[in-house]
Write a protein that binds this DNA or RNA. Structure first.
Lengths: 237, 237
DNA sequence: ACAAAAGTGTTTGTGTTACACCCATGT
DNA sequence: ACATGGGTGTAACACAAACACTTTTGT
């Protein structure tokens, strides 16, 4: 990149794709959107949604576009963050592809039949998929693994968990997010104190709901903070 | 990436580069390796070392190769980890380039005159560079910023700091790493207790040194742990 | 009345901070 | 003797875990 002369044909050219690890909660389980491949290579296997970046398209814009085309959701429905890039020479047998992988989190994302390209898309529990990593095409098992690790880690020290919640939610619903992503049971009483005490995490709306049964619960909206202090720790190890 | 037909010419082609944020400590300051550009665009400006990925080269291998060519150090001298990718369409005015940025940390890295390509390379204090971000070419100020943020964050909950230390080091030398990267003064007594108490962080060699002056200090080697528990926290905010 | 979930209070233990103090070397 | 940095001890405090207990709804 330094001290090179300009000749567009003198340098190797790669295809650049955007692959998405899209997580949502369904029935208290963390689910990932996968697509059943119809063509070779890896025909019949499952793959992460994704596609090529256009010649004049920002790599982040490509991720949002794929999200719209393959998942049927817009930027306002999800939180998107870059995961990492994967570029082993033989990761796609057809050509040299470098993929930029993205993590997308949303609440109540729709059944994928809505999108046009997404006829063969389905939500699967992430833990179940990772128990049989070989059913995934390309290096997508590794990408999914990395995406899950990232999501789990970020719940601790960021407010990312609210991305899995609707506009207004209860502390109990937020706890279900943590329990689903971490695969752990948390003490409802200590959890309540922690999240309501973390500066900028939750904003009380003043309203209550009984939708979970039991005593009516306060409704909250996500606060402005991005980082959590103090963090919500997973375990004292 | 899904349900596409194979035609190598049907997809946009990008140049893919590896850019490096190489940090080392010099005189107790966190320094980054920069290269003075001799040609347009951005002639005369400073840039991160980096270069094109070869057609059959792994993206990580490209990073290690650039490290060897432009910094003159091999894989055994540094810790390398992927930072993130940058691919705004106009980030390089000559052509469409997606760069995968890497963070490289090492102890006592050499003056860059040794490498052949690196005649115009120099170490500069990272904080000084970021005070005038406009002196950097391309989007390299953003990449450096992200690299510094990552390094600072990882000192808290990983054993990454030992990457800045020689094979054997004292607790005081390790503390200087934290102080240089965070730009803070730490209490030597509490720091000592924390790092010697963190499981798998340090292995005592049984030897002592007086190289820092004062009472002889125990020498340690880096332990096998990657994650720190408990973490070394930056501030109670 | 009872189940269920929300929310508060309390105890106990662990980790952090701030700082007094002693240790072992070089000059 | 003194300066310098290494290292231990300790009290005050913040936070987390565990759990008893009260509150407010639906059935």
């Amino acid at each position: 990149m330094v001290a090179m002369t300009y000749d567009p044909n003198a340098y190797p050219r790669f295809a650049v794709t955007a692959d998405l690890v899209v997580f949502t909660l369904r029935d208290g389980e963390l689910c990932v959107l996968l697509i059943r491949r119809g063509v070779e290579p890896y025909a019949g296997k499952l793959a992460l949604p994704g596609g090529f970046t256009g010649p004049d398209e920002d790599i982040e814009a490509a991720a949002y576009r794929e999200l719209q085309e393959e998942v049927g959701v817009g930027p306002e429905d999800v939180v998107l963050e870059q995961l990492r890039s994967y570029g082993t020479p033989q990761r796609d047998p057809r050509m040299r592809v470098v993929t930029v992988a993205w993590l997308a989190l949303g609440a109540n994302l729709p059944e994928p039949t809505a999108g046009s390209d997404a006829a063969k898309a389905l939500w699967m529990p992430a833990s179940k998929v990772l128990r049989r990593p070989k059913q995934l095409a390309f290096d997508h098992a590794q990408i999914l693994r990395d995406g899950l690790d990232r999501a789990r880690a970020k719940l601790e020290y960021s407010t990312l968990a609210t991305a899995f919640c609707p506009e207004e939610f209860t502390v109990g619903e937020l706890r279900e997010v943590y329990e689903a992503v971490w695969g752990l049971q948390l003490d409802p009483r200590n959890f309540h104190r922690k999240v309501t005490g973390a500066e900028g995490f939750l904003i009380a709306t003043g309203e209550r709901t009984t939708r979970g049964g039991g005593r009516p619960a306060m409704l909250y909206r996500a606060g402005k903070a991005d980082d959590l202090y103090p963090p919500i720790l997973r375990a004292t190890q």
